[in-house]
Simulated scan of single mutants.
Amino acid sequence: MAADGSTTQAAGEPGEAESVRAFWRGLGLPGLVDVHTHFMPDRVLAKVWAYFDGVGPLVGRPWPITYRTEEDQRLATLRSFGVRAFTAMLYPHKPEMAAWLNSWAADFAARTPDCLHTATFYPEPEAADYVRRAVEGGARVFKAHLQVGGYDPNDELLDPVWGLLAEAGVPVVAHCGSGPAPGKHTGPGPIGRVLDRHPRLRLVVAHLGMPEYADFLDLAERHPEVRLDTTMAFTDFSEATAPFPPSQLPRLAALGDRILLGTDFPNIPYPYLHALEALARLDLGDDWLRAVCHDNTARLFGLPEAAPR
């Protein structure tokens, strides 16, 4: 048992999957819906892992990859946890990469029915065309990574992209906060200007906007289509360097219908169960946990109802 009284088991232990399933069964849920998981082409994911292994400048501290397994095993792990639906968050760091990633993601979604078809973009002249093709091809969620991509979300090449996604009602999960290290275009200001022009955009702020939690809660209170995902927030790993202010918990509770479970699986430096226990120890109540861990995201994506298991 951990010092805080939790019973987190090491990732990969035989009882880990059953512990995760016991968590959501105890809430009367049919499973989990995780809006922030990563699946990418093997060679791209290998480079991402190598970056973490090398303690890259954005990371700045050891970051072991807990679920470093082959793709089939990673899928089996999520399914063993009872994750009903998940995403394939992928993102370009340079031009002429996004369309290729979208092609891979479309194929991945076609062979992985429990994955929400994910796509991405980059500020380049072709962006509006390949985003439109992705939407017409069934993409259900997009990923934008302002920190890794190093681009301004207000780049004029992206304005038709934001407009198209707002009109289509397709959510965009955006890493727009300044954690783990500030970028030139991170923080609530740049993405806030996008929302001012496209107020219907279904923006999901990754990592709760870490570490600018209060600022991104402000953004959500001003824009009813803004949601926030819980990726890595409240965990021991993140609390050590970017603690969530206790004073903001009432606001987090009040926005309970717009907080979505995200984990960063497989690229997390702790077991999946710990991310769930970190939410539970906020003590915001079972109704809040049920909404966050399943109902809010299921409603956003129109997932079919499932009986509790």
Rank of each mutant, 00 (worst) to 15 (best):
L75H: 04
T69K: 13
L252K: 12
C293W: 07
A139W: 04
F244H: 04
Y67F: 04
T8P: 06
G209E: 07
A106D: 13
L261R: 12
L261H: 12
P304Q: 09
T230C: 08
V292E: 08
C176H: 01
V172E: 00
R309N: 14
P243A: 05
G179D: 08
E239N: 12
D283R: 15
A134R: 01
L75A: 05
M1Y: 12
P62S: 05
A254D: 12
E277D: 14
D114M: 10
L282G: 11
A11N: 09
H185V: 01
P243C: 05
F301G: 07
L284S: 09
G149R: 07
G12N: 11
V205A: 07
D53C: 00
E305C: 10
L276C: 12
G209A: 04
N267K: 04
A110L: 10
G138M: 03
R132I: 00
T118I: 06
V148D: 13
L208M: 15
E71N: 05
F108E: 03
K184C: 07
E16T: 11
P180M: 05
A220D: 10
A106I: 01
V205C: 06
M1V: 13
L101Q: 14
F234C: 03
P266T: 09
Y130V: 00
S80W: 06
A11G: 15
C176D: 05
L165Y: 01
T66L: 01
A46Y: 00
A242Y: 15
T186P: 10
P30M: 08
A174S: 13
D72H: 12
A168C: 02
K47H: 08
A10R: 15
M40H: 09
G177L: 01
C115S: 13
V135K: 00
E305K: 15
T66C: 13
A119R: 02
V172G: 02
P271K: 04
H223F: 13
T241W: 14
L252P: 10
N154I: 03
L27P: 11
G5H: 10
G302H: 10
V204C: 13
D215C: 09
D53T: 02
P30E: 08
G177F: 01
A85S: 12
A22I: 07
D114W: 14
V35R: 10
D4F: 11
D283N: 15
G26R: 04
G302E: 03
L260R: 06
R193S: 11
A88D: 00
D152I: 06
A240R: 14
L208Y: 11
T230D: 11
R193F: 02
E156F: 10
P199N: 05
A98D: 01
D53N: 11
D264A: 10
A139R: 06
S178R: 09
R200E: 15
F52P: 04
Q73I: 02
A306T: 15
L116Q: 03
I65Y: 01
R84W: 04
G31R: 07
V44P: 02
Y272R: 09
E156R: 14
N296H: 08
A220E: 07
Y51G: 09
V135Q: 00
R197L: 02
P95H: 02
M232S: 12
T37V: 08
P188C: 04
S103C: 09
V205Q: 04
A50F: 01
P62G: 05
A280W: 07
L273Q: 14
Q9L: 15
